[in-house]
Nucleic acid binder design. Structure first.
Length: 495
RNA sequence: GGUGCCGUGGCCGAGCGGUUAGGCAGAGGUCUGCAAAACCUCGUACAGCAGUUCGAAUCUGCUCGGCACCUCCA
């Protein structure tokens, strides 16, 4: 069964076929690093992490080249009128240099990404490392007649670009976001920039004034690159003129992605991207979450409160193209679901042996497991429908719980379930079942064994007061005891 | 004004013409010394109105409500 992806270009699901059948080339818009990660970022990067993992499942570990940029140069609000450079503004607030700000928040970003168990991209280009290339591309665009210098800045000439002959498969300006230039009431909400020929023209290179900290020398004087340019330059540097998938937030469809397409196609004479994937926003009480709205919830705080896997699971339980309603209780609820999962898998691995954790075989030989896996795969193939995929996996969880409760000795079947959950939950969905356990190693195991034995003695002599005292005290310390037929299990309470 | 999207049971969230989505929470039960965990049972939800259809949460129209983009933002 083929993988289908919703392509923003066609506004429909399309079968996915990479240009190179052995290598999927994928680029995702990374963050501008001037603040800590919020839940909106988490939805974006967890969603695409899962996309990437599913592609790796289908095309192999080496079958995906995943590039994410870091925007470490600030950009003004709008093209060419007064505004604040986000990074520089933050630098002023913190009394640090813009470079320190970018480095600090980038590190914070990757820390959170690791906590969320997202794989590192294969390439992580930084805008400031590609200034030469951005200047070069700007020169080329001028040479091609689709850009012009004006008062030390350079603008992309949308009109000239539209007049140009387009090669087969190239996207006209406005083709991604379904906009017509003449419909945009430019000039109403932003003041027309007199440096531009037309309001829809966008900056490739901006003249810097003296107070601007981040600036570079160019053929047009001191300045800094326009926002859209870095993605065009860095994506083609690693992925070629035409590549398979470009991911990003729905709010960047226009103008950012539209501009990327125009400038890339103009300079390369080739189609830019074949599949555009856009994820939806996180809302807070029906409203978009955003830094500028002051309602953004910090990921570090949330991880400390409910655990990273609760957050990841919360995100995976909705579809990437749907808006997600932020609700602290809903995240806690997701955490409870995750704990149920972890309980089942922990018990399974106690039965079949932990050395089998990564063993992935035997699914096909067990019809009931295969059925779950096939449904899971079909859901993932259907535009990465993780909520439906997870729904099917929970069928498997219930089945397995029954087997475990009945003390099943069917090793082949149990191992098949282990394979199913290893692949589906751990490898594809990126759930980490060891993440928040923190059981404290061998010493803790020995100590707990001792305590559990003492308590067992008490229970045997029907000294339930002592037994309960031990259990209650451990509970206060964050340790849960569960008495079963074959003895007592212990674990850490979550969060 | 232009371009799109959405309104599902207590909460989150799938669904895209006809069979239980799923998770969480809640109620009852089984098991247990008591718990916990697990298992079993339980909720007949789809903003409103009108239409198409044998049949609509799912298609059409209207109404109401909400959101996003057109300005930096995941």
């Amino acid at each position: 069964m083929p993988l289908t992806i919703y392509n923003t270009l066609s506004r429909s699901k399309e079968e996915f076929h990479p240009i190179d059948p052995d290598l999927v080339r994928m680029y995702v818009c990374g963050p501008t690093v001037y603040g800590h990660m919020h839940i909106g970022h988490a939805k974006s990067y967890v969603s695409f992490d899962i996309v990437r993992r599913w592609l790796m499942h289908r095309y192999g570990q080496e079958g995906v080249l995943y590039v994410m940029n870091i925007t470490d140069v600030g950009h003004l609000v709008g093209d060419g009128e007064e505004g604040e450079d986000k990074v520089e503004a933050q630098a002023r607030r913190e009394n640090r240099s813009p470079y320190e700000i970018a480095a600090y928040y980038e590190e914070s970003f990757w820390d959170d990404m690791k906590d969320l168990n997202s794989l590192m991209p294969d390439r992580i280009p930084h805008a400031t490392d590609f200034i030469r290339q951005q200047i070069k591309m700007t020169e080329e665009l001028i040479a091609k007649g689709v850009a012009y210098e004006s008062n030390g800045s350079v603008y992309f000439d949308v009109n000239a670009y539209q007049q140009q002959e387009k090669a087969e498969g190239m996207i006209p300006y406005g083709g991604l976001s379904n906009r017509k230039v003449e419909d945009q009431t430019g000039g109403e909400r932003i003041e027309a920039n007199p440096e531009k020929k037309n309001p829809q023209d966008f900056a490739l290179w901006k003249r810097a004034d003296e107070i601007h900290f981040m600036q570079w020398y160019s053929p047009w004087g001191w300045g800094y690159p326009g926002w859209h340019l870095e993605c065009s330059v860095m994506s083609s540097f690693y992925l070629g003129k035409t590549f398979d998938i470009h991911g990003g937030g729905i709010e960047n469809q226009f103008p950012h992605h539209e501009c990327e397409i125009a400038q890339s196609q103009a300079v390369n004479d080739a189609p830019f991207v074949r599949y555009w994937m856009h994820h939806n926003m996180v809302n807070v009480s029906g409203q978009k979450m955003g830094k500028s709205l002051g309602n953004a919830s910090n990921v570090k705080e949330l991880i400390a409160e409910v655990g990273a896997m609760a957050l990841r699971f919360f995100i995976a339980q909705s579809h990437y193209r749907s808006p997600l309603e932020y609700d602290p209780d809903a995240i806690v609820a997701a955490g409870s679901g995750f704990e149920r999962l972890r309980g089942t898998i922990t018990r399974l691995r106690e039965v079949i042996g932990s050395d089998l954790e990564t063993r992935v075989a035997g699914i096909d030989a067990n019809p009931e497991v295969k059925e779950v896996f096939d449904k899971f795969s079909a859901a993932m193939d259907d535009d990465f429908n993780t909520p439906v995929a997870i729904g099917y996996l929970f069928e498997g969880v219930s089945n397995l719980n029954k087997l475990l409760a009945a003390n099943s000795q069917d090793r082949s079947l149990l191992e098949a379930y282990n394979s199913l959950f290893t692949i589906a939950f751990e490898q594809v969905l990126g759930m980490d079942f060891s993440a928040e356990d923190g059981r404290g190693g061998a010493l803790a195991d020995d100590l707990m064994r001792l305590i559990i034995d003492l308590r067992a003695n008490a229970r045997e002599t029907k000294d339930f007061a002592t037994a309960d005292q031990i259990r209650d005290a451990l509970k206060d310390a964050g340790v849960v005891l569960e008495d079963g037929k074959d003895g007592t299990r212990w674990g850490m309470t979550s969060s």
